[in-house]
Design a protein around this nucleic acid. Sequence first.
DNA 1: CGCAGAAAGATTGTGCACAACTTAATTGGA
DNA 2: TCCAATTAAGTTGTGCACAATCTTTCTGCG
Lengths: 166, 166
Amino acid sequence: MTGAESGHGAEDLALDRQLCFALYAASRAVTTLYRPVLDALGLTYPQYLVLLVLWEHDDRTVGELGKALHLDSGTLSPLLKRLEAAGLVWRRRGVDDERSVRVGLTGIGRALRDRVTEMPSRIACATGMDPDEVAGLRTALTRLADRVNRTRLEPGVILQQRGEPT
Amino acid sequence: MTGAESGHGAEDLALDRQLCFALYAASRAVTTLYRPVLDALGLTYPQYLVLLVLWEHDDRTVGELGKALHLDSGTLSPLLKRLEAAGLVWRRRGVDDERSVRVGLTGIGRALRDRVTEMPSRIACATGMDPDEVAGLRTALTRLADRVNRTRLEPGVILQQRGEPT
DNA sequence: CGCAGAAAGATTGTGCACAACTTAATTGGA
DNA sequence: TCCAATTAAGTTGTGCACAATCTTTCTGCG
């Protein structure tokens, strides 16, 4: 004991002990890994994620894209405009509901898929983990995100919310 | 088999199978978890990370902070200016080397530490994971980031680099 | 019908990340 | 000694993230 300690949480604030920093650093590292490949395709990483969603299922609203990616229109609207300007997607107002905007792939956008089909295996190789490890880590992260997204911390108190939608 | 498949990577491009997206989503989810608490302190999440480093070891150069956080001066310079403007840190040119800028905590910056000592346990609680799980995930992420940071993907070829500094 | 409230996107403003470039200080030879 | 190369920060420009706000459209209910 070197001096006054408050009795808890004394040295748990070390950067290397924070799960949050490990997540933040790993996420940026993996994004950096994608960068040279995506640069060659004229894509940013978030743009690539949008294309992943559209390659799975075309012609979706901005809101549906946002739900899949956990992004709001403040992020997606300008991003989609850039994808449209690049000729990869089209955007048009919904016919039945003029409030919504539907987004879909152009021929160029659809064709781009063939240029990234090897990315997952290349990334997997770069991680140095075997497929089971990767799947396990992915599952753990997804469960963590799901759990955390149902929790709100008040500035002074811990609150758990929304165990079920009732 | 529904049609022509290139023989590999056919449907591995589903968003929910991407480790990169799980990382990206989990990282943003945890940052969002911190936000209300940090907002009350007038801090952003990257600013909080800088303070974590300084609370561990005061009076460091911008480069040292960058190495700890994997951030460059383009990110840190304006961030540190804002922390300085908020009265939490000081900045001054190095005495021996006028190129470097040393950064340290003010009394206010140091005192702020007492207001976040409970964050790690609150976050741990919000994750719904026991301490061993959290530690295991943190270790896996750190190893992943280390491994990935030693790898460069060429637009068409996989290159492994820097096994050891020789 | 008429209108209050809700819903879907778009816009605005702040603060990262990161690449590319600039400036200033230092270092290491020839 | 001198100067080319290196190093440390800072600056500039682009593109996310996200909060707050705004506009347009739709829905429900009197």
